[in-house]
């Protein structure tokens, strides 16, 4: 298996098709990052909700006391 381009600029240019190819791989990176971030953000949101719930419960306890 060999690298098919002689120089870095040839690799980036890809005989004129560079912009098409690279924009697609950038979109791929974006899509994958978006999919990865989804559950992480949701997890954070749920943790935050839980903290808020605890704070409210503590407040109610204080008021009662």
């Amino acid at each position: 298996m060999q690298f098919r381009f002689d120089t870095l600029s040839e690799f980036l240019h890809m005989a004129g098709h560079g912009p098409y190819v690279w924009v697609c791989y950038a979109a791929g990176l974006l899509a994958i990052s978006f999919i990865i971030l989804g559950p992480i953000m949701k997890h954070k949101k749920v943790v935050k909700q839980s903290l808020q719930l605890r704070a409210i419960q503590a407040q109610i306890k204080n008021n009662d006391a």
């Binding site: 690298f3 098919r4 690799f11 098709h17 190819v21 979109a27 791929g28």
Partner: peptide, 21 residues
């Protein structure tokens, strides 16, 4: 796909998009 796969005889380098598409 980007650097090591051979260039396509008809489509040139644009076919490298296939590996994502």
């Amino acid at each position: 796909a980007l650097g090591f796969a051979p260039m396509d005889a008809k489509q040139g380098n644009s076919y490298r998009i296939m590996y994502l598409h």
